[in-house]
Design a protein around this nucleic acid. Sequence first.
RNA 1: GCCGGCUUAGCUCAGCUGGUAGAGCACCUGAUUUGUAAUCAGGGGGUCACAGGUUCGAGUCCUGUAGCCGGCACCA
Length: 648
Amino acid sequence: MTITLPDGKAMTFMRGVTGAEIAAAIGPGLAKAALILEVDGKQWDLFRPIEHDAKIRVITKKDPEALELIRHDMAHVLAMAVQELFPGTQVTIGPAIEDGFYYDFARATPFTPEDLPRIEEKMREIIKRDLPTRREVWPRDKAVAHFKGIGELYKAELIESIPAGEDVSIYWHGDWHDLCRGPHFASTGKIGDAFKLTKIAGAYWRGDARNAQLQRIYGTAWRDQKELDEYLKRIEEAEKRDHRKLGKELDLFHMQEEAAGQVFWHPKGHALYRTLEAYARRKFQRHDYVEVKTPLLMDHKFWQQSGHWDWYREHMFAVEIEGEDKLLALKPMNCPGHVQIFKQGMRSYRELPIRMSEFGSCSRYEPSGALHGLMRVRGFTQDDAHIFMAPEQMTDEAVHASRLIFEVYKELGFDSVDVKLSTRPEKRIGTDEVWDKAEADLADACTKMGVPYKLNPGEGAFYGPKLEFTLYDAIGRAWQCGTVQVDFNLPGRLGAEYVAEDGSRQRPAMLHRAVLGSMERFIGVLIEHYAGAFPVWLAPVQAKIIPISEKANAYAESVKRALSEVSIPDTGGGLRVEVDGANERMQKKIRDAQLQKIPYMLVVGEREAAEGKVAVRLRSGKDLGAMALETFIKRIRDEAESRKDVAE
RNA sequence: GCCGGCUUAGCUCAGCUGGUAGAGCACCUGAUUUGUAAUCAGGGGGUCACAGGUUCGAGUCCUGUAGCCGGCACCA
């Protein structure tokens, strides 16, 4: 039997040879390092016999696949440990995930945080025992009967969903066994012990809230201690950027119990908000949008007509007014309002497309468990727009909207953006023909732009498919923000029409589109992206003037007035500067400004006052020395206008 | 909404097995008038999330409610 190695070298072995034997034949180093074999492109246990000629590759810790394999094995060890410590606990599933693994258990009493160290210790012990792995193939029905017999009802259910007549593989580690597709390392000792259990959580069986809730334990696992340490460090760094923490430290906003899920923007946070809004407003204007404002509170009939009432009633705030037979609803989105504006007067095809934008305040009664700082709130502002058009304009308008999104992200410093096309969900309105066209229009738009996209089947809105735009922040985390949604359904339901070229009345098509998504959430993303050290154009305080002693206070104020007069186009006003007139030493004021991550500190003493200068210090600590106020103004204005993010 | 955890001064946090609350920073007052990351001294400030209960006595124990945190489910 011939075994071909990756370098093309062929070796001859007896039938039934195992990966371990092949690795040993190649060399003792490889025999030791080998974890899993790849046989004709399929992963194969080292101890599993090979019956045909094959091309093989030996996978070791160094290979990219190793992490996933380690994590999968680790999940098994976790399950073993839990079953040893807590007899009667049922196992369910336990996959490898990004950065780690988890395992879901069925158990009457939930785990407590104190259990984790015990389980971890047991896992290390199991790894140390170096239990050999064995693979068996059972007929499906035998496996079902077996797992039912030992009280593993979830496992039995899993196997029952495999077609009858098929065989399943069972893996043994010592005398513990589990249904598993494999592959697994030859023994538990091969896994290494660079892991840590991180959290416990409830999770629904098969991801469905109607099912029983299981107890999930999460862990992280790596090739070695160094990688594990790096990962833990990374988590720590991410925590430092948490927008909730920075929001407090930088005095940007707060939230409180009496208005759960809603934001109190403080002056500094609101400066961010206004700046971003002014930028977006100007950008939309340049892309031929018209801006409107619609009522917050409207008769709920609009949402009955649109269909939202049926879908989302329990997530809407509704108000009954005493003595009036009306049910009003706080708007959860802006489309019905925009359609009302469209419906005023007779619309001609000549006016189309109409691109109607609004910074629309929306309220949604989000489930309590979903709330998360600025990222998921009950009161938020969409940078929303609805584009009304003739149906045949759809592809062009989708391109137009998508280009705007790419442009804005790029200008805001997000260079890598992913696009997903979410298609018809099971629960939806509209005919299949309409959905066919809607999905095709979005796909065409991507093709036209030359933008690759991933398909996200079944994830569209109930009224139409959507493109979703995901950007990546400074530490590589993904944030889904922008969206472009085709809608051939709502305009009809809400009674919108226009007069076509031939004089007939036609239904307009509509595109829902948001670039930033929610202002609140996007600001949250910006806070985390910049770790609170905003580029000058966004910084709530762009320069802090620091008088060295009281003698320089008057000059400091005059510098502030001069800077406040400097207007920055497209960002909504003059430079934002403050004087620190406290009776403190300069060092202390510098420290305070530094901790507030203010980009420029302007130190002024009697020397600067006499010469009309400012001594410029950057938040990096770099001292630029004294320069004429005019020179500094030119510098900061250029920086703000270009929206540069200066790293130094 | 579901599972688990948490909630002590404006902020960050201490407070052992129940005996009646403490630090640093911030704030206020005074002194100091300062050259690139914390000047010194003094002072004020807490219904220990809320509501019940156990107890001679509860920040500490029990129950409920709310909010927050970590997940899950949801996300027009």
